[in-house]
């Protein structure tokens, strides 16, 4: 305090003023068990599994950094009337996530090509036994009900890929000669499924489902 100018004891008075001012304001405490916390929609609470969307592509299990996703499946033949030969279909037997290992990185949710995995902000699933933290597919399926709708798009952000593609397609017939914009998109993000393209992400089961396993 010696090198500062001002009245002697100014710092002491300032310190007292800060604490007194804080006292007159509302406390920041969240009274959690009594009042549910207001979590942002993309909070990483628990991972929900929408079983119908899963094609047993195993991407999530392979990308998981700590190998906490366990998937078993078998193939079933589906005889389609009128089809030349019966089709094969993957049936999910087991889909477990061990939340005692999970580090909530969200890579599985990111890599899932068919939107079978979602983040849910629910976080109250502590257990007395660590083995109970292994959630099977019914348990994971129950979390789906708690998945909030995705937040509204940021009005100032760039449009989503789906929107951009749709707009380009709509504009494509008019300017058929300028197809150059199409490959540019593909170069920027090398597609995992070249034939499907980003445009068909809306209905994944129709096109991409059978190729991935």
């Amino acid at each position: 305090m010696s090198e500062r100018t001002g009245l002697p004891g100014e710092g002491l008075a300032k310190g007292l003023a800060v604490t007194l001012r804080t006292m007159t304001r509302r406390a920041h405490t969240q009274q959690y068990p009594d009042v549910a916390p207001e979590l942002p929609p993309r909070s990483r609470g628990v991972i929900a599994l929408l079983e119908e969307n899963c094609t047993v592509c195993m991407l999530c299990a392979r990308e998981c950094p700590d190998w906490c996703i366990y998937i078993d499946s078998h193939k079933e033949e589906v005889a389609m009337p009128g089809a030349a030969r019966p089709r094969q279909r993957n049936v999910l037997d087991r889909f477990d996530i061990d939340f005692s290992l999970c580090m909530y990185c969200g890579i599985c949710v990111e890599v899932c090509p068919f939107d079978a995995l979602y983040w849910s902000p629910e976080f109250e699933y502590a257990e007395y036994d660590i083995r109970d933290l292994l959630h099977d597919k019914t348990r994971l399926g129950q979390w789906v009900a708690t998945v909030p709708p995705p937040p509204a798009h940021d009005p100032n952000g760039e449009p989503s890929k789906e929107e951009a593609t749709a707009a380009r397609k709509a504009a494509a017939p008019a300017t058929a000669g300028q197809r150059g914009a199409g490959p540019e998109v593909r170069i920027r993000r090398p597609a995992r499924r070249p034939p499907a393209g980003p445009g068909s992400a809306g209905n994944p089961e129709a096109s991409g489902g059978r190729e991935s396993t």
Partner: peptide
């Protein structure tokens, strides 16, 4: 209570 509120907390509840 006073200490809690001076630190933006609630204290024992």
């Amino acid at each position: 209570k006073v200490m809690a509120h001076m630190q933006g907390r609630l204290g024992p509840m």
